[in-house]
Design a protein around this nucleic acid. Sequence first.
DNA 1: CAGACTTTCCAAAGCGCTTTGGATTGTGCC
DNA 2: GGCACAATCCAAAGCGCTTTGGAAAGTCTG
Lengths: 382, 382
Amino acid sequence: MGASRMNCQAALQRENGNSAHMCVGQDSKEPLQTMSNKAVNLKELALHLGLSQTTVSRALNGFPEVSERTRQRVQEVAAELNYRPSLSATSLATGKTKVIGHVVQVSQHRMINPHFSDFLAGASETYAAAGYDMLLRAAAPEDEAGLYRDFASRKRVDAVVVHGPMVDEPRIELLKNLRLPFLVHGRCGRDIRDYAFLDVNNKTAFETLTNHLIELGHRRIALINGLETMNFAQRRRAGFEAALRTHGLTVDPELMFSADMTEPYGHTVAGKMLDSTNPPTAIMCSSILSAIGVQRAISERGLTLGSDISIATYDDLLSFLMPSDGEEIAPFMTSMQSSIQAAGRRAAEILLNQINDPETPVVQEVWNAKFIKGRTTGRPVR
Amino acid sequence: MGASRMNCQAALQRENGNSAHMCVGQDSKEPLQTMSNKAVNLKELALHLGLSQTTVSRALNGFPEVSERTRQRVQEVAAELNYRPSLSATSLATGKTKVIGHVVQVSQHRMINPHFSDFLAGASETYAAAGYDMLLRAAAPEDEAGLYRDFASRKRVDAVVVHGPMVDEPRIELLKNLRLPFLVHGRCGRDIRDYAFLDVNNKTAFETLTNHLIELGHRRIALINGLETMNFAQRRRAGFEAALRTHGLTVDPELMFSADMTEPYGHTVAGKMLDSTNPPTAIMCSSILSAIGVQRAISERGLTLGSDISIATYDDLLSFLMPSDGEEIAPFMTSMQSSIQAAGRRAAEILLNQINDPETPVVQEVWNAKFIKGRTTGRPVR
DNA sequence: CAGACTTTCCAAAGCGCTTTGGATTGTGCC
DNA sequence: GGCACAATCCAAAGCGCTTTGGAAAGTCTG
């Protein structure tokens, strides 16, 4: 005990000498390069303090068994010596990694896209605030199962977010079996009861949009949907068709398209329709991206948006399409809006709550997109 | 020794019983739910094999001290029992995390955007192939330094990629001091010698584009640039100005704009210019995104692209703007093209080489963007 | 002041891997 | 047979943290 205190003094001196030597005074006007970059581990810190590792660990982690005075002192010295617990050591000891996994599909479709990345941006903000990190891994769809299995057995992550659920989604069963906590962005058709998800009300959104067009007098309405192997696209189509049927309109397969939601796709498909003998008077899009392509096709043909032809779209409020804070611009496109970035934030929140308190019942949230009347829809001229 | 062998047999039986019990036969038609989800650790695996942990570890990691026969057997049994080394244990022991860090800025500007995410998509592909993962963390710019420090001292990552280098970039010095390997996407003005980077030749690209417009007969050319606090934007502007000066044209500050590269920004700025008394005959953009906004402003005014007004832009070949494999469409915009996703792939490759062989000299690569004559540039009518 | 709690701290045993420094066995050669 | 040497394998000591199961000291009671 006395010996340990002696060691402590000796170590303290050596340490100070060291840090003065290594860290200060190479380029002292550089503000970013502060004191001590040298890392200290728990053992050394405990030595400095003349305390046991147990006590130091507890003091820093807020356990009640340590006196307030000691805790203060520990915190001060820890800050001073720039102590930061090693993450691999911590996670080896606790079994928690403080990392949430996200999987990017690298297939031709669903390549990382602005929808996805805006969601990630939102989520990572929440993670950062809670001391979590986001792990991103690219995978071919056929590898994804193995990847989750890897996540689980190698303890790479504490939980995962399932992106782009398909109509029939095997991943959900898999994750349940692996006992890897997860949240689905979107949802899956059958067996919806027992897992957490955050979704928007896709069906209602597309009913609303379709109704709006019908009320304006449109009878031939096209739908440029996302990939209909995906759950959300399926629901959107259902909403579209329901609205048509309610008004006694026929569902024309010639006017329905489904593919990855890109600008060129919207452009190509709209172009073909506009050049056909019996073009639609309105086009609905599943994404603002394809809507932009449609708009390009329209402007190339010298048609007027909102009278010659109308566009209504789902809008995820993608950040690169949003005006910066200062400028107030009138909403341009008629759309159903819901911020996918906000969804990312909330999804992360739900997931973190879930893993920090596993007893809590699963959260299932469905957001309603907001209808915005813009300048791209109007009465048809014909 | 004999005893250990006995234990091994006993454990083997117990284990088999277990896995049959837990894993098979809950829903045997589900293909994703294969054999054994139960994880086995090294100790158990060694027990099963009747070998020491050392030997098993070496067999699996390809050390020469173990006979080929043994290695075979170890690999087989490891696969059979679904052994996967715990990552936190491995990284605690080796000091390597197999993770590369990327930092997202969450400020108003440089919010995660399609350029950034396409780069990430490329990089994560390379990482995945090499068994690495990508860690994404959101940070306010003022926190970024602390974050790198955290990465270094807590050993969260093996290396980082620096995104969006500013004109004057303190992060580089910091990372050098932290001895955290890094690669810069882009580069930084001064002191360029001693760090790895991957950049495109921004200056030349914008000289080329400007020359093209000048040769067509344009005299009033506008530049809608990115944020000129960023290094790349600075270089682009330099190229633009150099080309003008070479041809004896004056650099008109009224025609130069700088901000985050969004669609609305392009739209707003182009609108203002087009409505002014003396509009430019050509507009250059730093991003296809602002170019799309410019195009919208042009079509709103019923002007014809390529004659009334020309657009030339830098094009990162963003994936959501690319046509899918099948459809061949003629290039639309006149642009300087370079795939930012390919850059992500290559950047990751360089970085991985660097950390796996630290002795190798730093790699500095500058790509030349490719000129594409599209349909958005032509002779000015006035 | 003894006994019963609290309060405050600690030594040591993990967590699951890698790696050091041998020990053991097999082989070739004189 | 004995010796050197290579080929195989192993026990045990880390890596840096958390956590268990006390021990020691301080604080109340009656």
